[in-house]
Design a protein around this nucleic acid. Structure first.
Length: 666
DNA sequence: GTAGGGTTAG
């Protein structure tokens, strides 16, 4: 696509050397159309308040000094246009313009054809001039123009130098253009720059980023010498591709590492969902005496967020403040995310409040955070506040706001935001936005509407869409609609255990045991294994993991005893076990026992036994919390006078005085 | 006159 644009745009004007100015007809009106058979066209209009005297000061050519110079410093493409127009009007050559200045201004203009045209008046630009222009284009928002300019250079047979190659490669990385990257690679070989590590490293970066990992690896392998940057690039590329083992192997083989090497590897672990390894590596890095910078801090905080490890996150926060990173936007945004994912909404809020400058990421993270903590009103308020500051929402912001609506069952608001996205902000909804809407509608009981939305989507629905719909069917106890969803899921995501479990659950709740068993058999036949549920609780820096029915824990017996005592008190408060969540067909009392050994209950009792009275208990779970545990936790929060914060796969539940922050809608 | 690598919200 890009190549055809480049070629098409460059065809209209590729004469080199460019024509001399005196070939150009100069009209006498105030609008100067620069038009000739070989120059291309453009319009230079002189505005009334710009007089030649104001704009430039041209020394009169004398016999001692035959070359005139323009000493006016224009600062924008607009002013450059004025200068050009005046030069044309006064019949002076455009070569009077200070060339480096023209190059950088040209690079700023979004109207590149005109820039090119001005550029073309300059006879035989020296290579640094091309390069400066390329650099400015590559660094600004005109990356495609940089590549276009390079294309033009090639068509003029201007020989690039190593700087040219470097700038073009940078532009290529920006737009993931491997085509021109390979052309530059050709020049690098032809011009003998193979030992220029800056260039070869840039090529590694480009190939890897464009998904040509084989090329990157081949190039890396045959490099006669590599520097630390080469290794760091390869580590980043491999980890981004998901090959965290390959990345770590390279990291281990490095004879010398700098802070960026460590940061790249820590980030790589986080990217590959290995947060524990990331933190371990960070500690190892600290032991070598290296001091983390902002980027490292961001990586480690992301790991804390994944693990929900508040203690370590707080420690990093302190370190970050001590190191003077308080005002770094990336750090603050990641802190917000970390505190949210560790269940400390208040701490997230205070980081947000203290920020002097906020980006769309800060706002979106905070809105999403309020949503998953069930604070819909505040999330919507924050959205409005954001709009008032003039910040424009993006796709992620809308995802957060739609999440808010779906978590709280705000049907009309959700519909309004969904419509507003495309109507007011000209954003076309992504599959994730549809996912939120399907979730919102189906959970609110509007299965027909959800179904209609799915069938009218402009994108092909994926497993997540039908999965949301299936989830809604379970809440609505609609077996037929669920079966329809399963028909799609059987094709779209046949190996995902969650869907079989939900379907089996739906049958079980309808007491259709044979059907439930049939689904479980189907699951088995297809080799799909149920993800075991686990819950963790961290006490004094140590994380304890529980799985359902766990009797291997050293304190198992005590936990069971304590539970039995607690159960008596719970029954007095009206707790009745909800055995319908057990999808197996077994005797009622067996079901109860099964229910009482859910991992989050074990973790909670363990927490009650091992923390001081009044202390908040924080539990993390890999699946969604079940209805019975939810009811039980409400009662326990009242009996034990404890705040209990549970992070499940989708959101937080904060139990306090017999109530949950989700208001029982989740 | 001009070059390189690691970062945030879903």
């Amino acid at each position: 696509m890009l190549h055809s644009i480049c070629l098409a745009s460059s065809l209209h004007n590729n004469h080199f050397p460019p024509p001399k100015l005196n070939n150009v007809q100069t009209p006498t009106t105030t609008t100067y159309s620069v038009k000739s058979h070989n120059v291309g066209s453009g319009e230079c209009r002189v505005y009334a308040d710009f007089t030649p005297a104001k704009l430039y000061n041209v020394q009169t050519p004398t016999s001692q000094n035959p070359n005139t110079t323009l000493i006016y410093h224009f600062n924008s493409p607009f002013e450059l246009k004025q200068a050009v127009a005046i030069l044309i009007k006064t019949n002076k050559p455009l070569t009077l313009l200070p060339l480096p200045r023209v190059a950088s201004i040209c690079a700023l203009t979004p109207n590149f054809p005109l820039a090119q045209q001005i550029f073309n008046y300059i006879n035989y630009p020296e290579i640094p001039l091309w390069n400066t222009c390329l650099r400015n284009l590559a660094e600004g928002n005109n990356v495609i123009d940089a590549i276009l300019l390079f294309h033009q250079m090639c068509s003029y047979n201007v020989m690039p130098d190593s700087f040219t190659c470097s700038f073009v490669l940078k532009a290529c990385v920006h737009v993931l253009d491997i085509y021109y990257g390979r052309i530059v690679h050709g020049y690098i070989e032809k011009l003998g720059f193979q030992s220029n590590l800056v260039l070869i490293n840039a090529l590694l970066h480009l190939y890897g980023s464009c998904g040509a990992m084989a090329d990157a690896l081949q190039l890396f392998d045959k490099m006669p010498q590599r520097d630390i940057v080469s290794w760091n690039i390869m580590i980043t590329l491999l980890a981004k591709k998901g090959d965290v083992d390959g990345a770590f192997e390279l990291f281990s083989r490095m004879s010398e590492r700098n802070l960026r090497s460590w940061t790249a590897m820590i980030t790589g672990f986080v990217h590959c969902a290995k947060a524990k390894e990331a933190i371990r590596l960070f500690i190892e890095m600290e032991e070598t005496g290296l001091k983390a910078n902002e980027v490292t801090v961001v990586a480690v905080l992301a790991a804390c967020a994944d693990l929900g490890s508040l203690e370590f996150g707080r420690r990093i926060h302190e370190y970050s403040n001590k190191s003077g990173f308080r005002r770094n936007v990336h750090v603050c945004n990641t802190l917000i995310d970390m505190y949210i994912k560790c269940g400390c909404l208040e701490a997230a809020k205070s980081v947000f409040e203290e920020m002097k400058e906020r980006t769309i990421v800060s706002w979106s993270a905070m809105i999403q955070g309020l949503a998953i903590h069930g604070q819909a009103d505040e999330a919507l308020e924050l959205f409005n506040e954001m709009i008032k500051t003039g910040m424009k929402p993006n796709e992620v912001t809308f995802l957060g706001i739609l999440h808010t609506c779906s978590h709280m069952g705000l049907i009309n608001k959700g519909r309004e935001f969904f419509a507003s996205m495309s109507r007011d902000y000209k954003m076309s909804p992504q599959i994730e936005h549809y996912g939120c809407m399907v979730d919102l509608l189906s959970r609110a009981g509007l299965l027909e509407d959800a179904y209609e939305l799915i069938t009218n989507m402009h994108i092909k629905p994926n497993g997540v869409i039908w999965g949301s719909f299936l989830g809604g069917c379970r809440i609505q106890k609609n077996v037929e609609m669920a079966e329809e969803a399963m028909r799609h899921l059987g094709v779209l995501d046949p190996l995902n255990d969650g869907y079989y479990i939900i379907m089996s659950n739906i049958y079980a709740e309808a007491k259709r045991w044979e059907d439930a068993a049939r689904v479980r058999k189907l699951m088995k036949d297809r080799g799909v294994k149920k993800t075991p549920g686990w819950s963790t609780i961290t006490i004094a820096g140590e994380t304890h993991e529980f799985v359902a029915g766990d009797d291997n824990h050293p304190q198992a017996e005590e936990i069971f005893k304590r539970w039995d005592k607690l159960l008596e008190q719970m029954r007095l408060k009206g707790y009745v076990p909800n055995t319908s969540v057990v999808l197996l067909d077994m005797e009622e009392n067996k079901k109860e026992e099964y229910l009482y050994r859910h991992s989050e209950k074990l973790a909670l009792v363990f927490g009650l036994m091992n923390t001081k009275s009044g202390e908040t208990i924080r539990i993390m779970k890999n699946l969604r919390v079940c209805e019975d545990c939810h009811a039980a936790f409400k009662v326990i929060s009242e009996i034990a006078k404890r705040d209990i914060v549970v992070r499940d796969r989708n959101r937080f539940h904060c139990f306090k005085d017999g109530f949950c922050s989700c208001k029982d809608y989740w």
